[in-house]
Design a protein around this nucleic acid. Sequence first.
DNA 1: TCAAAAGTGTTAAGCTTACACCCATGG
DNA 2: CCATGGGTGTAAGCTTAACACTTTTGA
Lengths: 232, 232
Amino acid sequence: MTRYAHSYRLLVALDCIIFGFDGEEIKVLLIKRNFAPEAGKWSLVGGFLNEDEDLEIAASRLLFDLTGLHDIYVEQVEAFGRVNRDPVERTVSIVFFALINIADHDPEAVKAHNAHWISLKQKPSLIFDHDDMVRKALEQLRYKATLHPLGFELLPEKFTLPQLQKLYEAIYDAPLDRRNFSRKLLSTGLLIDTGEKNTNSTTKKATLYRLNKEKYQEQFYAFWNLMPVAIL
Amino acid sequence: MTRYAHSYRLLVALDCIIFGFDGEEIKVLLIKRNFAPEAGKWSLVGGFLNEDEDLEIAASRLLFDLTGLHDIYVEQVEAFGRVNRDPVERTVSIVFFALINIADHDPEAVKAHNAHWISLKQKPSLIFDHDDMVRKALEQLRYKATLHPLGFELLPEKFTLPQLQKLYEAIYDAPLDRRNFSRKLLSTGLLIDTGEKNTNSTTKKATLYRLNKEKYQEQFYAFWNLMPVAIL
DNA sequence: TCAAAAGTGTTAAGCTTACACCCATGG
DNA sequence: CCATGGGTGTAAGCTTAACACTTTTGA
């Protein structure tokens, strides 16, 4: 294979912000490192790019290793490349975020990697520039979730309106009016009433909805404008 | 310096989509390549990352080489990394877009690189995955320009309302109502009437405005909602 | 005086917001 | 029966969208 002459070759890594929702809070899956460098500290899920891998494939590999899940929602955030961001050796890291239904992950895989679901609000400081990565990923999640109906990726197949509302309140860290939220969501036609009720509840049982997937596909790139605009 | 063992090191490049506006159309600065690979074809402005450079610094270096301009608006789009995207040797490319006032560029520098301003609508096919990069950059420009007042980066210091409107019509490739546009823009308080009139015009002379820079800074991250939402 | 572009106001419709009461359930 | 959370309607204000005529200028 021909090669470019005189050029500088370096490591390319991938780091993933894995978002989950437990019904109350947004959580991220973080690693308590038992390996160098920075053993003992917290970091994102990451790894190096292999020779035969596309970026998205590599990100999916890392995500599968950690959660046991395929076909999850993944989006690139951006590349982080400060010269000294990794003190061991220069590495450019491509950052992705993933949205998963927290109930779906494989607890064995998570345990094996010494990973933990940590509430965003209690996130410890992370190594290198990983705090910046989380900040940027959250910003992008907020943008996207305002414009497109991607919150559903964080919920189980069947979910209630109050759950959905709590999710959006958690994403934006802001309270929403129950009546307005309900009206707006139902008016999108994205929700299908399953006829079932949430049996977990100890008080009045909420209606379980599922996502209208055709409409979801169609409308994904329609402007959604779900959130009060002032919140962004 | 310690190094990571057993890891694959590769080239990291940068490619820039340089947007300009000539008063009628959005243009991009493209290179008619007189060097390998793919000599004779069109490509984006690009180059390799150096050992001591941050990504943004490297992008600014490329932009300065080509346009003679410092301190221009630059934003990262994302990393492109398909295994075979560069047939010579695997290269991950970090893509940036830049917005410049087309009148400000240094014609000598542009000429020396065999670069040309090409209207988006007449853009030829580009090498490698550069067409995808342009598509993605344009998408990001549209998003951002809907939410934030960054169109001004493409205009001269003093500009008229009709120019501004043509700019937004070009960004979205859609017509806008003159009266509604004018009302909305003036109501933002972002425009300051210079008291001068556009002397170029052969018919009625339009008022020249300049940007209220303090307000621009303040409001950059305010949600702008300039465009009819249906256009996204 | 004519053609071409700039400037300007009003109305109707739709959307957003704010707000309060009743219902179902399990303890 | 009471505490908790689910479900629902309405009115006011604001924003958006649609629409046409007058003014300025230079050729």
